[in-house]
Design a protein around this nucleic acid. Structure first.
Length: 850
RNA sequence: GGACCCUUAGCUCAGUUGGCUAGAGCGCUUCCUUGACGUGGAAGAGGUCAGAGGUUCAAGUCCUCUAGGGUCCACCA
């Protein structure tokens, strides 16, 4: 098959992927050291974003590289039902159709979203294939698959029995627009410009007022105390007395509690236990009643004075402030900046509301995780993320896992219709009512927080507890995710993995930074700076997208997307393609030949190849994906194409060229799976695997280091000649040498070819510009007029070298340096000094000679 | 209030446990239609490594402080 002039990814990618799939190339081989990963399941509710493409690239490189070195690789794909997220996406779609979730029953909504997700799941999977994902598709997990749901139920029951799960009325983070509670981690806090209102609370039976400061005056309707710090001298006399609340005329006590900061506001705090986490805690300590002011629709409850009932929070606030002002209770208003929680989807202010929910007691789970992390049982790249995670776990509070939405895994719990405290576990969630022991039980209408099920991903994906996969591949070798889900996901996988399997879920965690927009800002649909990976792929190819994203990125650091890197990677694919085009016939003709290095160039390229293979192994071990890429790029482009292939035009060794190309294809394959496989298929190298994806790495054939070094010297000579030619605008100059006959003819030819010389001839005495980089006595044959131009350059060079010599001498005359620096370093310094001095002598000779 | 990260060439970024003349890509300048590639080839210019102090024989790298940028966490009403 003849290769086209330029690599066109579109002509190959789909076919190549099918070729792999049809040959079951992604299945674990069953032999070799196990290497396992599960892909963080994308939400099955739309398209992949650039972050997915990036993490896909990193993990697919790891998977393919480990196959290459003979590991037994399990790479598990998955998709997430993404409960709340998906419901939001679906509701937006409903909105466009002029409908809302209230138009449907829970069951209707569920089944509609099911269809919506099924379609998107397909879409996501197709996109992953385009990205080159070498997944074992047969082990694909969808987060509503039976095994995931069963596992969630089992875990729920186990935790219930272990007293780790409890149901209780607590303050929860409630979004009144979406009508559901959230975990703490899901609340988005933002600085907001608000006000601090100072309200006078009359002390009962006196003319005194106790002034409190608040950012939320509307909650005063639910105040059940006013608190001061017990050490606050100003209020000593008031503790134990009561105040009469304005507007409602309820009498509430003045209490003393340490949590009050005397410095803040007036040092007196209104206590609204039903709407503030601090106040809630205080109320528990002081046995205060809880009065709900705001309902789940974000409106004032019916228990409140009639004039405020049914008003939205902000309206109620205005009305209350107006009334307070009218009655003389408002002392003053100050501007105040404070942090307010918002729904991360609709930005509605989160209301802390009292609600009965299922909670997980996180302390014991976090404790185990912290221990594992402090012992470095799990390695983090970068390690700073491990430290961050420990800090997070230390302050973790109980986790609310109930969600008031329809899309998700129903909570398998039922309540006795006659006794609200009698909750039982039962998996018959498809029924609303069940009979147990002659009592009717009603299903909890809520579903699990998605993270509750997805935190089981590593062990559910490997079929805990008894499957072969679990035994072989758990704990996973590597978990790669974005830094944004360190807390919500990685932390929970560790905690629940330890809880359920008694083992860490993965050995290494690679936290990649986020891909920001080109200007460095966060990508966001509303800002419109989102880069669609599929567009990039369409234009530049899958390999270019992958390498372009990985180039120059280091673990844990956010970086802007850079289209130039993608372009550069596209060019690189094309370069490789053309190397293959140049080599195609040579590969064919040398199929039966054993590669044996003959020329200095052969030894040099083989030794470079060997270095590449060794260093790449080191890169992969420490997840240096960008370093690996750069290494491959420079080997293939600079060493192979610019030097070796050029040298081969002087004298070629086809079997070595073929060998080098084939080895390069193997090594680059993880980074550029499509183009390398396409080339492989057209070359069909002898005695190798049919598919490149199935090829294995072998030790590089031996090369002679001395001969390789000889080529390096020759290279320097060529570079010097090119440099002089360029500076002096010489076109095809000729070289004269005094001892030409002592130099190998082949090397002479090589220099002539590479340095673009017209001729190399022997002379009695040299004339022209003497080369300084070479041991050979060689001169570029030029006229006197040209030499004058060159003299200035020589002088500058001498000066530079002299400074260098000075520095080296100073270092060597430093006693401490001689005593303390490693011997090898001192040797090198001496050697360097000697060489530089010799160079100066040579240069000076040149300068004086003219 | 706390934690973490970043500041190196015009731009985007590398720089392992401190070690010789600080690297890459893009861009820029000059040149080249050389048997694959102009998505190419050759040569080159360009950096007081944010600033100050310290440790060390030796600091882009370690420590302290300062300035600027970013991210995350936290129940100050």
């Amino acid at each position: 098959m003849e290769l086209s002039k330029a690599y066109n990814p579109k002509e190959h990618e789909q076919d190549i992927y099918s070729l792999w799939e049809n040959n079951n190339a992604f299945k674990p081989s069953g032999t070799g050291k196990p290497f396992s990963m599960v892909f963080p399941p994308p939400n099955a509710n739309g398209n992949l974003h650039i972050g997915h493409a990036f993490t896909m690239g990193i993990q697919d490189i790891s998977a393919r590289y480990h196959r290459l070195i003979g590991c037994d690789v399990l790479f598990v794909p998955g998709t997430d039902h993404a409960g709340f997220e998906t419901q939001v996406v679906f509701e937006r779609q409903l909105e466009k159709e002029g409908k809302s979730r209230f138009d449907f029953s829970r069951e209707e909504l569920y089944s509609q979203i099911w269809d919506f997700v099924a379609a998107n799941k397909n879409n996501v999977e197709n996109q992953l294939k385009q990205l080159g994902a070498s997944f074992d598709w047969s082990s694909h997990v969808f987060s509503l698959d039976k095994k995931v749901v069963d596992s969630a139920y089992k875990r729920f029951k186990k935790m219930w029995d272990d007293d780790l799960i409890y149901r209780g009325e607590r303050l929860v983070n409630f979004c009144t627009f979406h009508g559901t509670a959230f975990a703490d981690i899901e609340v988005e806090f933002k600085e907001e410009q608000g006000h601090l209102w100072y309200i006078k609370y009359p002390v009962t039976g006196t003319n005194e007022n106790l002034v409190v400061a608040t950012t939320r005056p509307e909650t005063m309707l639910g105040d059940t105390a006013v608190a001061v710090n017990p050490t606050d001298k100003r209020y000593q006399g008031l503790i134990g007395k009561t105040i009469t609340l304005p507007l409602t005329n309820r009498e509430v006590p003045i209490i003393a509690d340490d949590f009050v900061d005397p410095e803040f506001g007036t040092g007196a705090v209104k206590i609204t236990p039903a709407h503030d986490p601090n106040d809630y805690e205080a109320a528990l300590r002081h046995s205060l009643p809880f009065i709900s002011v705001i309902d789940f629709n974000g409106k004032i409850t019916h228990e409140m004075p009639e004039k405020y009932r049914g008003k939205k929070v902000i309206e109620a606030r205005q009305a209350i402030l107006k009334d307070l002002q009218g009655e003389g209770f408002l002392e003053k208003t100050e501007d105040y900046k404070h942090s307010v929680g918002h729904c991360y989807k609709c930005k509605t202010t989160i209301q802390p509301l009292l609600k009965e929910q299922w909670f997980i007691n996180m302390k014991p789970l976090a404790k185990k995780a912290i221990e594992a992390l402090e012992d470095k049982k799990i390695k983090f790249y970068p390690d700073s993320k491990r430290v961050q995670l420990i800090n997070y776990l230390k302050q973790l509070r109980d986790w609310n896992i109930s969600r008031q939405i329809s899309w998700g895994i129903p909570i398998p719990a039922f309540v006795n219709e006659d006794n609200p405290d009698d909750w039982i576990f039962d998996e018959r969630v498809e029924q609303e009512l069940i009979e147990v022991n002659n009592h009717t039980y009603r299903r909890d209408p809520d579903v699990f927080d998605t993270w509750f099920s997805s935190s089981s991903w590593p062990y559910v994906a490997t079929d805990y507890p008894s499957s072969d996969n679990f035994k072989k591949f758990y704990p996973l070798s590597l978990m790669d995710t974005g830094a944004d889900i360190l807390f919500p996901w990685v932390s929970r996988m560790i905690m629940l993995g330890l809880y359920e399997t008694d083992q860490i879920p993965f050995k290494d965690v690679f936290m990649h930074g986020l891909i920001m927009a080109e200007d460095g800002a966060k990508m966001s649909k509303s800002v419109g700076n989102v880069i669609n990976p599929m567009d990039v792929l369409d234009k530049y190819g899958s390999d270019a997208l992958r390498m372009g994203m990985i180039a120059g990125r280091v673990a844990g650091v956010n970086r802007g997307y850079d289209h130039r890197k993608v372009e550069d990677a596209r060019n690189f694919c094309n370069k490789l393609w053309n190397i293959a085009r140049f080599s195609q016939e040579k590969v064919n003709s040398s199929k039966s030949k054993k590669p044996v290095p003959e020329t200095v160039a052969d030894h040099w390229i083989i030794s470079k190849l060997s270095d590449l293979q060794n260093n790449l192994a080191k890169d992969m071990e420490k997840y240096g994906f960008a370093e690996g890429y750069e290494r491959l790029y420079h080997f293939i482009w600079d060493d192979l194409a610019d030097w070796y292939i050029e040298a081969s035009k002087s004298r070629s060794n086809d079997s070595i060229l073929a060998y080098t190309l084939i080895s390069s294809l193997k090594l680059l394959h993880p980074y550029a799976p499509f183009v390398t496989e396409a080339i492989w298929q057209s070359l069909k190298p002898a005695n190798e695997s049919e598919l490149l994806i199935g090829a294995k790495l072998e030790d590089i054939i031996p090369s002679d280091k001395k001969l390789a070094a000889k080529f390096d010297k020759l290279k320097n000579t060529v570079i010097e000649i090119r440099n002089i030619s360029n500076t002096l605008k010489l076109i095809k100059p000729s070289l004269t040498m005094t001892k030409l006959s002592e130099v190998d003819q082949e090397e002479i030819n090589l220099i002539k070819k590479l340095a673009n010389l017209s001729d190399i001839k022997e002379v009695e005495t040299g004339k022209g510009i003497k080369l300084t980089s070479s041991e050979m006595a060689a001169w570029i044959d030029v006229d006197k007029s040209v030499i004058d131009q060159y003299l200035d350059e020589v002088k500058a060079k001498v000066k530079q070298r002299e400074t260098q010599v000075e520095n080296l001498r100073a270092r060597l005359s430093n006693k401490s340096y001689i005593e303390k620096a490693p011997k090898k370093l001192i040797e090198d310094t001496k050697k360097n000094l000697k060489e530089t001095e010799e160079e100066i002598t040579a240069l000076k000779e040149e300068a004086t000679r003219f």
